[in-house]
């Protein structure tokens, strides 16, 4: 049993997977236009530049060699402090906005600390800033967001969302032009 379940099964699965699904089995790597691998579409990256869309908070700065979050309890004082700080920072970056208009996913840490997605609202929320910093029209950005939005699986499961890395790749391309 040790040999069958512990050695033969995983090795055989690796072999078959590599043959049938070579891209998926190797971490779904994403390349830019020049063909250089710049990350995995499944793993979030830390975007700091104002000309890019920003992802969710990651207590581990999207370090994909590990994974994790702070595991703050809902009653933890540090959580409240962190959220207050983020509200101030987001207001400063994105012009005068009301607290209730900030999408909650931008203020919260994902479970894995590697969440590659933000909500559609969170992407739209950042459009004015990105438009100004990157020199791309608001209409063009809205169009990019619409193209990048992933719908619910089979129309039912999960939530509509935007992959930050794929969206920013498109932003970068437009800028180069």
């Amino acid at each position: 049993m040790i040999v069958i379940c512990g050695v033969i099964y995983p090795l055989a699965m690796t072999g078959v997977s590599q043959l049938v699904f070579p891209d998926q089995a190797n971490a779904s790597l994403t390349k830019n236009k020049e063909g250089k691998v710049i990350g995995s579409e499944l793993i979030g990256q830390d975007f700091k530049g104002k000309q890019f869309f920003h992802g969710r908070i990651s207590s581990i700065e999207n370090n994909a060699a590990a994974s994790g979050s702070n595991n703050y309890a809902p009653s933890n004082k540090d959580l409240i402090k962190r959220v207050e700080k983020s509200i101030v920072a987001l207001k400063k970056e994105n012009g005068n906005v009301e607290t209730k208009d900030i999408p909650v996913d931008l203020l919260t840490n994902s479970g894995s600390g590697l969440d590659p997605h933000i909500s559609v609202e969170a992407a739209k929320f950042q459009v004015p800033r990105v438009s100004k910093e990157a020199g791309i029209s608001i209409e063009k950005l809205d169009e990019l967001i619409k193209d990048t939005t992933e719908k619910r699986s089979l129309g039912v499961f999960g939530e509509p969302r935007v992959n930050v890395l794929l969206l920013n790749l498109k932003v970068q391309e437009l800028q180069k032009k």
């Binding site: 959220v83 209730k100 479970g111």
Partner: peptide, 20 residues
């Protein structure tokens, strides 16, 4: 505790959860 800060509750408690 976060609702008290004036946050929007439409998305629910997203701390520690994944967007997808």
């Amino acid at each position: 505790a976060l609702t008290k800060l004036g946050l929007n509750t439409e998305q629910g408690s997203m701390e520690g959860k994944e967007m997808r």
